[in-house]
Structure formats: C-alpha cells, structure tokens
Amino acid sequence: MSDVKWGMVVDVDKCSGCQACVIACMAENNIPINLDRDFKENRSIAWIRIERYWEGEYPDVKARFLPVLCQHCGNAPCEPVCPVYATFHNDQGMNIQVYNRCVGTRYCANNCPYHARYFNYRRPTWPETYNNYLNPDVTVRDRGIMEKCSFCVQRINAATRIAKRDGNEDAIAGLQTACAQACPTDALVFGNLNNPDSQVSQLYNDERSYVLQESIGTQPNIRYLKKIDEHAAAEAHAH
C-alpha cells in the first residue's frame, strides 16, 4: 500500500460555492453543528470551507470562491511544533491528527498558513434525534483538542481492508472523500497521485495547476486549478 500517495485537485473554475462539500464533510466526519454563536465567536468548525472573496466595485462585483481544506503538506509547518507528536506524516502523503494524543496547545493551528486546523472550544453536542446519524467509524472529538481534514481516513482504511480481502484494487480505485463525492460540479477530484492514469494525477500536472501560498514551501498534496477568466485573458491579449 505504500505506493499510494493520496492527493486532491481543486478546480477553482468549477467551484460554484454551493457548500455541498462542507455539509457532506460534516455528515461524514461527525463535525458538531455550527450554531449562530459559533460563527459569531469565530469558533465554527468546518474541515473544508468555501472562502468567498468579492472582486470589483459595486455594482460590478463578482464573487470568487476558494475551497480550503487541510493541504496535507509534504513539508508541514504544523508537524514539528507539536510537543506530543499528535500530528505527523504517514507514508501515503497524508497529514494525520491523533486525537487521543493531542493536549490542545494550539501551536499547530498558529503555524498553519492555511487556517485549516480547528479547535474544539466546547464539548460537541447534537440534538438527541441526531444521535443515530453519527458515523460510527469516526471518533467524536472532545473539547480541548485540535481537528482537521483527515482525507476521510476511515474510508481509506475500509477500502484498504476490502482490497486486501478481495485481492484486487477495485475498492481503492473507486475511493472518494465525502467532499469530492458530494461536489455537483466535480470541482474536487480525489485520488492516488502515484497512479499516472488517475484523473487526479493528470489534473495535478495540468498547466493551470498551482499551489496555495507556494512561497512558504509546504509542498502540499493538494493543488488548485486556476480560474479561467475570459475577461482577464482578453485584457492580456490586448496588451
């Protein structure tokens, strides 16, 4: 299995900002329901979030959307600063958060250039009727620890088990994270970067692809595809 390197490509051009990925992630990963209060206090938790930027002056404005999740950096700033090894790197290119080991110093969150790490200020609660909806494969995080996108590690583990049982790689080939699965425009593509035939590895090397905040040198396993802006392209031609 070590020949696998999980990665993702985010096509900014395709993203419509619908937030389906956010909801899918919450359902999959037992993220507590963000209340009004949480947003006002800036304590909401969303492993993937859609950042919305306005471009231009009113009335000629455009909304730009940028889905941001943990970039699963190859050279992650969050890792060396953790005193208890609660976050580390595995051999499949993923950045792993170990909830049990976390003591909540929040240093990793400070050092994450993508703001991709979230802290549980409160003990998570759900309305009683929701209790049976929680995903049994995912730990519910108690207060006082960090959490972040895990690339749906529970799905990866399950697929690996099935692949081992069946003796073929079909389960792994069809693997999707919750966000990629839910994306109606296929803006999020997840897969094995080491497989040259996979859609993700082809998009990964697309000429439009770029790395978020490349100057920090984090070498992430997630790349973005540039917005195709006809207006800007026309302008560039004119010059």
């Binding site: 206090e41 800036n42 304590r43 909540g104 929040r106 969150a109 703001h115 979230y118 802290f119 200020y121 409160r122 207060r143 006082g144």
Partner: peptide, 8 residues
C-alpha cells in the same frame, strides 16, 4: 476554553 476570548 470557550470562557476565554480565544478564537480563530
């Protein structure tokens, strides 16, 4: 820690 003013 929610009783503090810490937030993202």
């Amino acid at each position: 820690l929610w009783v503090t003013g810490l937030a993202r």
